[in-house]
Amino acid sequence: MTQRTEQSPLELLKQRAFLLSAIRDFFRQREVLEVETPVLSSAANTDLQIEVFQTQAIAENNQQAFLRTSPEFFHKRLLVAGSGDIFEIAKVFRRDEATQLHNPEFSLLEWYRLGYKMRDLMAEVVELIQYLRQQFDLPAMPVKHYSYQQIFNDYLDFDPFVVNEAELNQMAQQAGYHGEPLDRTAALDFMFAVQLEPKLEKNQGYLIDHFPIEQAALAQAHPELPDRCLRFEFLWGGIELANGYQELTDANEQLNRFEQDNQNRLAMGKTALPIDQNLIKALQQGLPACSGVAVGVDRLLMCLLGLEDIDQVLAFSANSA
């Protein structure tokens, strides 16, 4: 393993190497296979809020290529093909994301566990965080577990599954939102990102699960509560570090969601994007029951080192790349 050194601006490259090495050790001990999957794909992520980089075709049978925004589609194809548990430290790309916590090109640690329920994977995320804290000579982190509903109740004093769009807009305006009325999902995003996250304690971990079904992406619906899904996040203080799902295995449902994404994109004046038919085909063959999660590696390093700006942990940020 690479030796860890004390923090100083010139040592950050070594700190990153140390972190990557510690992550690989963690998964080696658990016999999770490291994989590499393509950066370029003929299909795109249709997610409404993620902007994809586009470039020339990779092969003769396609017209254009897209830089991946996540390795998840390839990972599911590997799982269908019988890879077993896998992880990847993947460079991913998202246009128009440059803030204190975003860089258009960043590293995602993505992993999948066969047979894991959402709860099992949530526990493993916390184990990874605690393992890495230990490696970085930090004490174990207290972690609180909330449902999406409970954390809204506790911190913002309302039930996100009961409140209606008009009430949400009224609250948003009182909290300083200026502009056209927000749709329900965007208003909840406002409440979560602008109102709730800044209230969270700095050195506390937060596991939040059972997000609204509209925010499911690739997660299964909740078996008993149809307005919720089996999606979770891990936040370090107010910073979103991990996003995970008990994975949707139903090919038709997945195709419907991609098509709905494209409808939403068109309604917002964006272009529809080519759906990953290879993924749909793989799901039709049968994705084994599994859960998967993605962790922002740059943010993780930032948090472990107590830094506040993602630029501080990048060798070259967007402005100098």
């Binding site: 809020q49 993620i50 803030t99 204190q100 975003h102 999902t185």
Partner: peptide, 13 residues
């Protein structure tokens, strides 16, 4: 300050 949830609407605060 730009605030962007991983899967959600971005805001400028």
């Amino acid at each position: 300050q730009e605030v962007k949830p991983g899967k959600g609407q971005a805001f400028n605060r």
